[in-house]
C-alpha cells in the first residue's frame, strides 16, 4: 500500500534554476492545494481543493513523467489579496497510466483528476489450476 502511495509522489520543478526564478515569480503567493488520492482497480483519482479557480484558468499538463496542476485565481494578484493567488502542485507518475485518457473535472472549487491505469498495471486475478 505504501508502494502505491509512492506512485504519485510530490516533486519540485525540474527546470533550471534560472527558469525556476521565473516560475516562482509567476506563481507568487500560489499555494500547494490539499488533495485526497484514492485508487480503484482501474483508476487513480486525485481530488483537490482549488477554491476560486475558473475552469478556463485551470492548467493540467503531463510534462514527461509529471502531472502538473497549475491555476491562478482571477483577480487575487491585482487586488493584492491575502488569500492564495493560485495553486500549484506537481506529481511524479510512477505507475503506467494511460496518459491519453487522463481526464479532469472541476466543480464548486473541487478538482477531480482521473488517471486510468494502463492495462498492464490493473490487478489481474490469476486462476490457480
Amino acid at each position: 500500500m505504501n508502494g502505491e502511495r509512492d506512485e504519485l509522489r510530490d516533486v519540485e520543478s525540474t527546470v533550471s534554476p534560472k527558469e525556476q526564478r521565473a516560475e516562482h515569480f509567476r506563481r507568487r503567493n500560489f499555494v500547494r492545494p490539499n488533495v485526497d488520492i484514492y485508487s480503484t482497480e482501474s483508476d487513480m483519482v486525485v481530488v483537490g481543493d482549488l477554491p476560486g479557480v475558473h475552469k478556463s484558468d485551470l492548467d493540467i499538463t503531463i510534462e514527461r513523467d509529471d502531472l502538473v496542476i497549475e491555476a491562478p485565481v482571477a483577480g487575487r494578484a491585482e487586488a493584492e489579496s491575502a488569500l492564495p493567488w493560485g495553486y500549484y502542485r506537481r506529481f511524479r507518475l510512477r505507475t503506467n497510466f494511460d496518459r491519453d485518457r487522463i481526464s479532469a473535472h472541476m466543480e464548486g472549487g473541487v478538482l477531480t483528476v482521473t488517471l486510468p491505469k494502463a492495462a498492464s498495471e490493473k490487478t489481474r486475478k490469476v486462476s490457480v489450476e
Partner: peptide
C-alpha cells in the same frame, strides 16, 4: 472514496 477504493492520501480538511 467510492466503495472498494483505497484511500492513499487524505489532506483535505
Amino acid at each position: 472514496p467510492p466503495a472498494g477504493a483505497r484511500l492513499l492520501r487524505s489532506e483535505r480538511p
